[in-house]
Nucleic acid binder design. Structure first.
Length: 615
RNA sequence: GCCCACAUAGCUCAGCUGGCAGAGCACUUCCUUGGUAAGGAAGAGGUCAUCGGUUCGAGUCCGAUUGUGGGCUCCA
């Protein structure tokens, strides 16, 4: 967010650093009302008006495309020089003038050849390319080339299939947001154009709401809160890899602990496999040719080793370490594997795009007749784990892609079994045809966070070929014959790094009690209350609670403020009154004051609340 | 990787057209021992990301490098 053309409102700036204690569950008010076609027409029209402004400022500018998108629009330009934030305000000013002039949008239709000539004359090669592609596509389909339609408003005319609002005056309040580079047609071998993003709404209140939501998202940004809450940091000695501070690591361990509990209950067995592995492993699995660019490879004594980018192949060595009976299956191996992927430098971003991460991975080996039951159980695991953090998973079923390994009949069977499991579990899901991996149909899991943003999280894949065939896995069936198992790959949190990043933003740093790295801070009012404060801390820690004592010489009010900023769920105030009765006065981070409570009763209550994993 | 922007104290940031490096918070010490969102005073803290260049003189101008941000791209 490098360019914000207009200064924030003064009161907003003053409040910016310390936003109010977030009230979780207020998601609805943050949600977008949703786009509709009238608004889309307005946004697309705004793109035209912006193109008018840009071509006015930069005669000879070449135009890419300028569609409506969620919340706004963009337009790509080929310009003689890079745009600056000052240019954005100049463009906004010109746009405002065009809106004030209320130019009608007029549609013209031209014969295809005339249309091409029209844009060729005006030296608009990208538009010509679009028309040529359109013609080629029609020819290939054996259809007539459609007429070329253009829309004209005031001094500006553009290739466009519409629709538009009636006139520029109908365009609602807008704001230009940022400039970014974008390859023509998303292809890095094509020229890089300059893209300007803007947002448009039907009225000022909606625009204000949108800008507020953007500001709110920025305040919740896990990269910012990670520093403020002392969770993790990044350093240039290892770009793309987080340094976990004690509090961040505590969140990590707490999530991991809950998952271990669930996995134990479900009969998983935990394994751990090497990080540094000879490249021949990925030659065998088939990953190497496709994935080598994303791997960290190194030469060791004349051989090539790599840091593992995924866990899957190695669990097969444990599977094959002895002969397996049909009675052994399902065999559920889970692994918290530390993975490295060489993401391109420009793509790294906080915890959501990293080079090193740890997955709560598992590989489950099943007989074909066990597949549907196992998938159904896995869907239950996903629902349970996500309920701990108040997220509702949505499922997408991705089927066989065109380029796929293995016997099509097997695919068909596996897909039918997955569908059966999905239906039986009562899950809501969409089907994404041909979106599976080359070795497995899969179920992808999505959530919407408190700001209404969608994230792809976990995945469940039913691998028919890669592990079973490439590594020649077998089990002995009841007739003494070797059979192929199916390998289910699944991660529930996915990457813990990414999961925590999403949770930080979802909760705005105010983690539920069970997950909060510090669950309570004890606030002695005066120094003489320090020894009993330590005593109380001992009682609470004895019940497994994570507790700090604020031993600074700050005043109580200041200690409360600091605990509030750290979003610690409970502040336990200890003064003369409390020490006398061996009680403490709890205050929650939303400002609620609870009656003073006897130490062991308080410890019991908080421990119960924490164990319940409530929100 | 590519385009653009940015990098000043632990954090958030100021430093106009080149002329001895600043503030608030945090930290240390002292005073204060308090009742639900900042008590007071003093002090310490910076090779202005790194390397090179222009200049009498560079935080400031130019170049390269590294990192970060907004995007594009990719994602088994």
């Amino acid at each position: 967010m490098t360019q914000q053309p207009a200064a924030p409102a003064p009161d907003e700036a003053a409040l910016g650093e310390e936003f109010d204690a977030p009230v979780r569950g207020s998601a609805e008010e943050l949600l977008d009302a949703g786009a509709h076609s009238e608004l889309d027409a307005m946004r697309h029209s705004a793109a035209h008006v912006m193109a008018e402004a840009v071509t006015g400022l930069f005669p000879g500018a070449k135009l890419g495309i300028g569609p409506a998108i969620q919340d706004g629009f963009y337009y790509d330009f080929d310009l003689p020089r890079p745009l600056t934030p000052d240019d954005l305000s100049a463009i906004e000013t010109r746009m405002a003038a065009s809106v004030a002039a209320d130019h009608p949008f007029v549609r013209h239709e031209l014969a295809p050849a005339d249309g091409r000539a029209f844009f060729a004359e005006r030296d608009q090669p990208y538009k010509v390319e679009i028309l040529d592609d359109l013609g080629a596509k029609s020819a290939a389909a054996g259809e007539p080339i459609p007429v070329t339609s253009t829309y004209e408003h005031g001094p500006f005319i553009d290739l466009c299939k519409g629709p538009h609002v009636a006139s520029t005056g109908r365009i609602g309040p807008f704001r230009l947001l940022s400039v970014a580079g974008a390859y023509w047609r998303g292809d890095e071998h094509r020229p890089m154009l300059q893209r300007i993003y803007g947002t448009v709404w039907t009225n000022q209140a909606e625009l204000d709401q949108h800008l507020w939501r953007r500001a709110e998202a920025k305040k919740r940004d896990h990269r910012r809160l990670g520093v403020q809450l002392d969770l993790f940091s990044f350093h240039d000695v290892s770009p793309g890899s987080a340094f976990w501070h004690p509090r961040g690591q505590m969140i990590w361990r707490t999530l991991e602990g809950s998952m271990r509990e669930l996995q134990l209950r479900r009969g998983y067995q935990e394994i751990s496999t090497p990080i540094l592995v000879n490249e021949k492993l990925w030659l065998q699995s088939g990953h190497l040719p496709l994935y080598a660019d994303n791997m960290f490879l190194l030469q060791v004594e004349g051989q090539t080793f790599g840091l593992k980018p995924m866990n899957c192949p190695e669990s097969t060595f444990i599977y094959r370490s002895r002969l397996r009976s049909y009675r052994d299956l399902p065999l559920r191996y889970n692994e918290y594997g530390r993975l490295h992927r060489n993401e391109r430098s420009g793509t790294l971003s906080g915890l959501t795009r990293v080079r090193q991460f740890i997955q709560d991975d598992a590989h489950i080996y099943v007989r074909p007749d066990q597949l549907a039951d196992e998938i159904e159980a896995l869907l239950g695991e996903v629902r349970e784990a996500y309920s701990w953090v108040g997220l509702t998973p949505r499922f997408a079923f991705a089927t066989k892609p065109d380029k796929a390994l293995g016997d099509p009949a097997l695919w068909e069977k596996a897909e039918a079994l997955i569908k059966e499991a999905l239906d039986r579990s009562g899950a809501q899901y969409v089907v994404k045809p041909k979106d599976g991996t080359f070795y497995a149909p899969k179920i992808d899991i999505y959530i919407d966070d408190a700001l209404g943003r969608e994230w792809q999280m976990a995945t469940i894949q039913a691998d028919l070929t890669m592990l079973p065939e490439q590594f020649d896995l077998t089990y002995i069936d009841e007739h003494g014959q070797p059979q192929r198992p199916i390998a289910i790959h699944r991660a529930i949190y996915g990457s813990l790094e990414r999961f925590i990043g999403i949770l930080v933003e979802h909760f705005a740093g105010a983690f539920p009690l069970w997950l909060a790295p510090v669950q309570a801070t004890i606030i002695p009012i005066a120094d003489r209350h320090l020894p009993p404060a330590e005593e109380l801390a001992g009682v609470l820690r004895g019940r497994g609670l994570r507790v700090d004592v604020d031993a600074s010489d700050n005043r109580m009010q200041n200690k409360i403020r600091l605990a509030q900023e750290q979003k610690i769920p409970y502040m336990l105030v200890l003064g003369d009154r409390e020490v006398e009765g061996r009680t403490a006065a709890p205050r929650t981070r939303v400002g609620e004051q609870q009656p003073a409570e006897e130490w062991s009763a308080l410890a019991d209550r908080l421990a119960r609340e924490s164990a319940a994993r409530g929100l």
